[in-house]
Design a protein around this nucleic acid. Structure first.
Lengths: 349, 349
DNA sequence: CCGCGTATTTAGATCGATCTACTACTTTGC
DNA sequence: GCAAAGTAGTAGATCGATCTAAATACGCGG
């Protein structure tokens, strides 16, 4: 009867629904959760009663009793990095369709903030954690979370142990380096990724192995992994420098190409570039960026799935998933680049 | 005594802390919330007892009784857009320092997903909502949220009414347009922002007014607001086209500059560009992007503050904050651009 | 028509905090 | 010296769901 929910009267509770449907409170609760223990008719009757009253489920109450919150805590090391933003979107979408909500915190690479947020997540009694550890996080954090009884999955970055989803970094840079070698480059340097973490070391290793396998010396050009830094750094390189750069990620490659332009050099012609991640902007860049594709969204989805399985069965061994990368060959490595100079001449004739 | 929290035994409750400290449960609760109703010594004793037991506050229980969750729901229309990513970081930081956690959902511009997530937020009994309405959201959504008793603030995008924090879009594009006019441009077009929302109309208006004030015809070049689209669109413009583009936002401006390069034209020399937002990448772009600065982070912080005030006093009238933009003059509008060609010549001498 | 197993439904305790209203004990005022 | 006011602490109800264990209904063989 009550049709329209009235803001003045209080929100309907499960007891009200039970009354309206003419069943017991516990029956109503079961019906609203679609329990097979109830007859279909009963379930339907209760659900219709709930509809009539404009009943809204109160997960806070459920959470207190059942201990399950259907909330996952997510720690992102730097949400303003487009790769992590995409990954966040992937995680969120995957968890959303499994009925979970996502508590998000940006650690901005600070282990202190990271710790504070983990504690807050614990107070909020999240069902699990999905995180990219801030640079400098000790692996012992996993033990602590374990002690807290909080299932955890690392994504992209991780530790030697523990549930994890991430790209095969070494294979990725190996593919990129081998491609450049095939194109005839010999003086190839690795740009960016100074931080000592699993991602940096993996990407460096893939590059370095490919170089030494060809009898060449690997060279590390360290710079912070953002566009501005990379741009400044590359602008200082002279024409005597490397003819090709394997960049730590796409942002660094973008920075490198802008730096080259600033120095009056043409990315893709004067210096070949490869990136890593294949973020959305990579293909529409000029020149389009040759890069290692590891769909951030897919990593997010994989991480979410591992976490959900882990929540279901916390005793199962920690699963680790390494996503195979593919090389997206575009123009920035020198193949098939249409140069502005050439175009300009063509246009004026 | 119990020193180390034992994962085998259950988590300590407030009753355990009370026992350890030799006070009543309600006293312990007050002490843990630092209530001034208690003597300092009592508070300290309880807090130390909590420390000893490794007590962790259970907000789920508190939330059930008190109705306050210290969780805010945030709806982002497109988290992979760097501007919104920065805004998200701002909101998150501001709310975090006020003791709140943020439930995040990416609507990907879908009103359906937006609605679903709002309902989920409601179930989770968030204390408030901070959102950028997906394109096509009716203003009546505000009434619904009101009926639900959920305080809400819109950021960046919004409606005619309701609490809001956002940039002064019209002033921003007016500044940019006037700057281009001062530089002698007459054939200036507005690029991007086809969607019919408050942001698009505001930015178009500022541009159009400045044009008509100078006796010029405003021209809208509609294209979707992402880098790839803008790049494709601009690549088709001929040299007979406009000499300057006021772009809807930085991403569009980036796309435009890449599109010009593809067409063999030089952004900043052949065509002047201005952006909007001043995202991190704008200053390290080549050429550095002249753009309207409205710190995304500041909008996020302003939005968070308005929401928190609104939660404190829901009966107060909805506050609206418009952040004044400033024009960041850089090279992309043609002033002080050092051209690659010139540089290249200088380097070879 | 009884007993037994299975399918449904239910009563009442429970999760862990907060809130209200009350007690006990000081202090103050006159 | 006694009421009024103030201070510090407490008992017990309460939030709204879930869980456990038990009651009831139903079907069927004998």
């Amino acid at each position: 009867m009550a049709g329209i929910p009235n803001p003045a009267t209080k929100r309907a509770r499960i007891a009200d629904v039970a009354l309206e449907a003419g069943v017991a409170r516990s029956t109503a609760a079961l019906a609203l959760r679609d329990s097979p223990r109830l007859r279909v008719e009963t379930r339907l009757a209760v659900q219709q009663a709930a509809e009539r009253l404009g009943y809204v489920y109160n997960r806070s109450a459920a959470r207190l009793r059942s201990g399950r919150s259907y909330v996952i805590g997510m720690l992102v090391c730097e949400i303003t990095n487009p790769f992590y933003a995409e990954l966040t979107a992937g995680v969120q979408a995957a968890l959303e369709s499994a009925g979970y909500a996502v508590l998000l915190a940006n650690t901005a690479e600070s282990p202190v903030r990271q710790r504070r947020m983990l504690e807050r997540f614990r107070e909020q009694s999240v069902d699990g954690i999905i995180m990219m550890p801030a640079t400098g996080t000790p692996a012992s954090l996993l033990d602590e979370l374990d002690e807290w009884g909080l299932p955890c999955v690392t994504v992209v970055r991780g530790f030697r142990r523990g549930a994890h989803a991430g790209p095969d970094n070494a294979t990725g840079t190996r593919l990129a380096t081998e491609h450049l070698l095939r194109l005839g480059h010999r003086d190839i340097a690795f740009l960016g990724g100074a931080a000592r973490n699993s991602v940096s070391s993996g990407r460096w290793e893939g590059y370095a192995r490919a170089m030494t396998a060809s009898g060449l010396m690997p060279l590390h050009l360290p710079c912070r992994t953002d566009m501005g830094e990379a741009s400044d750094f590359v602008a200082t390189l002279t024409s005597a420098g490397p003819t090709a750069l394997v960049c730590f990620n796409d942002s660094v490659a973008f920075g490198a190409s802008l730096g080259l332009l600033r120095a009056g050099r043409q990315p893709g012609r004067d210096v070949a570039l490869t990136g890593f991640d294949d973020i959305r902007e990579a293909s529409s860049w000029f020149p389009p960026l040759t890069t290692v594709r590891v769909a951030a969204v897919d990593i997010g989805i994989a991480g979410a799935r591992i976490l959900l399985d882990r929540i279901q069965d916390p005793s199962a061994p920690a699963r680790r998933e390494t996503l195979a990368p593919t090389l997206m060959v575009r123009a920035s490595c020198g193949a098939g680049l249409r140069l502005p100079a050439a175009r300009r001449k063509a246009r004026t004739t």
